[in-house]
Design a binder for these strands. Structure first.
Ligand code: FES
Ligand code: FES
Lengths: 141, 141
DNA sequence: CCTTAATTGGACTAATTTAGTCTTATTATA
DNA sequence: TATAATAAGACTAAATTAGTCCAATTAAGG
């Protein structure tokens, strides 16, 4: 039970940006050195986050990336979901073909609910919450 | 974000046993055919569950496996944990060496708590709950 | 305009993990 | 003693993940 490394790094990178001035662009090189996330991998991660609208990127000299929205308006779920290709805790929740065990299986309902519960937490937590939660512990609403 | 196939199958197998008479032993061959879980794989799964005390196994003619305890006393967590070797949602929660980002990272606390929340659900749900939950939806306590 | 500093997109590769199999030994019963 | 079962653990194949590389594009500065 683990997140992909991309999602893990993705959060770290977004958190990095969120803790800095929003008035400038950060080059991948700079972020990579600061966070120790491999640059080429980080590039791929940002490409994904750009597509899903969390990050803005700028080509060319003086280019780089920045948050597309305020940290208060970005949820953890928005960062994680596009980077976690394989969703679904168990096979039955991932595949379309129906399971040979479905007739007497009571498991998938439970996994579905548990998973929903998990994503509800990610949905209701913003990046801002994390930053503030770090200073004085947790306060969500 | 997914469970290993072993954990997934493990639940299905325990659920299979729980829905049947506790008065007999079930051979791997029988369970494998009924659930469509590959027999040799299922064998390994049961070996793990035997070690953690959920399943009793009996060698020799007339042997097989059975629940070591009543379904009411087995939690989902007890089935999943021994079959999910790699615990820890993100790298920081898995590795002992400390993370290069830990100084300004607000993420690991969050992941730790989210993960705890997840396991609390697994801990407070018994196999019996699942079976009954299937008939008339959810009632936990 | 030309050079340089940046991202894009996508193909590629290496490493790791996962899922599954096989084989030999042991045990219990008839 | 034959047979029907699990135990233990080495082994293998497939899949996934993590990470790299490269050619193309774009923007800014001189
Ligand atoms: S294991 Fe497939 S429906 Fe439950
Ligand atoms: S990413 Fe390592 S402590 Fe947060």
């Amino acid at each position: 039970m683990k997140l992909t490394q991309g999602a893990d790094y993705g959060m770290a990178a977004v958190l990095y940006l969120s803790q800095r001035s929003e008035d400038r662009r950060y080059s991948l090189d700079e972020i990579s050195r600061a966070t120790e996330i491999p640059e080429e991998f980080l590039r791929k991660i940002f490409q994904t986050l750009v597509k899903s609208g969390i990050i803005n990127s700028f080509k060319g000299r003086g280019g780089g990336v920045s948050l597309a929205r305020s940290a208060r308006d970005i949820t953890v779920a928005e960062v994680i979901k596009p980077l976690e290709e394989e969703m679904g805790l168990v096979r039955c929740l991932r595949e379309k073909e129906n399971c040979p065990r479905s007739s007497e299986c009571m498991a998938s309902n439970f996994w579905r609910k548990t998973q929903q519960n998990f994503f509800e937490i990610l949905n209701s937590t913003t990046i801002k919450d994390l930053i503030e939660g770090g200073k004085q512990n947790a306060r969500k609403g």
